[in-house]
Amino acid sequence: MIVRIWRTGLDESRADEYETFAYGRSLPMFQRQPGFRGVFFVRTATGRASVTLWADLESAEALANAPEYHETVAAIRSTGFLQSPQSVELLPADKTWIAPDLTTP
């Protein structure tokens, strides 16, 4: 399992727009990618992050070459609500455990 963390600054006055984009456009795009296993959209001290889970390193790295991913990135950048800094990190998950009854509110 690979954990991919994308961090971004955000114009907090437009946080509702970001959330609409994340759930309405980013999530469906991720769901169509081979090897995608899950996502957490989280708040950080300086903005937001999407923490995605991937079956393997190849799947996580393939996202960077996926045409639909590039279209989604272009669309979110064009909104103007993202701010610097932005970063991406890939981390191997040595061991994982998720409660079987875990549900999203």
Score class of each variant (00 low, 15 high):
R37A: 12
L102E: 03
S13R: 13
G47S: 02
R37G: 08
P105M: 02
K95I: 10
T103N: 05
W6Y: 15
T104Y: 11
G35R: 06
F81P: 02
D56H: 03
R32N: 12
Q86I: 09
A15P: 07
S50R: 02
W54F: 09
A66S: 06
E19M: 13
F30L: 15
H70D: 14
F30D: 08
A45T: 13
K95P: 05
L27W: 06
R7I: 14
R7E: 15
T104D: 08
A64N: 08
R32D: 10
Y18M: 09
A60C: 09
I2P: 15
L63E: 06
E17Q: 14
D56M: 06
I76Q: 02
E12D: 15
F40A: 08
T79Y: 00
V73C: 00
T46G: 04
T20P: 10
D94R: 06
P100L: 03
D11R: 10
L90Q: 13
L63D: 04
P34W: 01
L91S: 12
D16L: 13
S84I: 01
L90R: 10
L57C: 01
F81S: 01
V3G: 12
F36K: 05
T72C: 10
A62G: 01
P100S: 06
E58P: 08
A22D: 03
E71F: 02
F41R: 00
A22K: 04
P105I: 01
A62V: 01
A74C: 07
T46M: 00
Y18C: 10
F40E: 11
A66W: 08
F36N: 08
I76C: 01
M1G: 15
T20I: 14
W6C: 09
P34Y: 01
L57F: 05
V88I: 12
R7G: 14
G9R: 10
L27V: 13
G35V: 06
F36T: 07
S50Q: 09
S26P: 06
P105F: 02
L53R: 04
F40D: 14
Q33D: 05
F41C: 03
G38H: 02
R7N: 15
V42E: 11
D16F: 09
P105W: 03
A75P: 10
A74D: 15
R14P: 14
I76N: 01
V73H: 00
P28I: 03
A66R: 04
S26Q: 11
S26I: 15
G47Q: 04
A60F: 04
D101C: 07
T104P: 07
L91D: 04
R14Y: 13
P92F: 04
A49Y: 01
D94C: 05
A64R: 07
R43E: 14
A66F: 04
L90P: 09
T52V: 09
G38Q: 02
G9M: 11
W97S: 14
K95R: 14
P28R: 02
G9C: 11
A66E: 11
V39W: 00
F81Q: 00
E58Y: 00
R14A: 14
A60H: 02
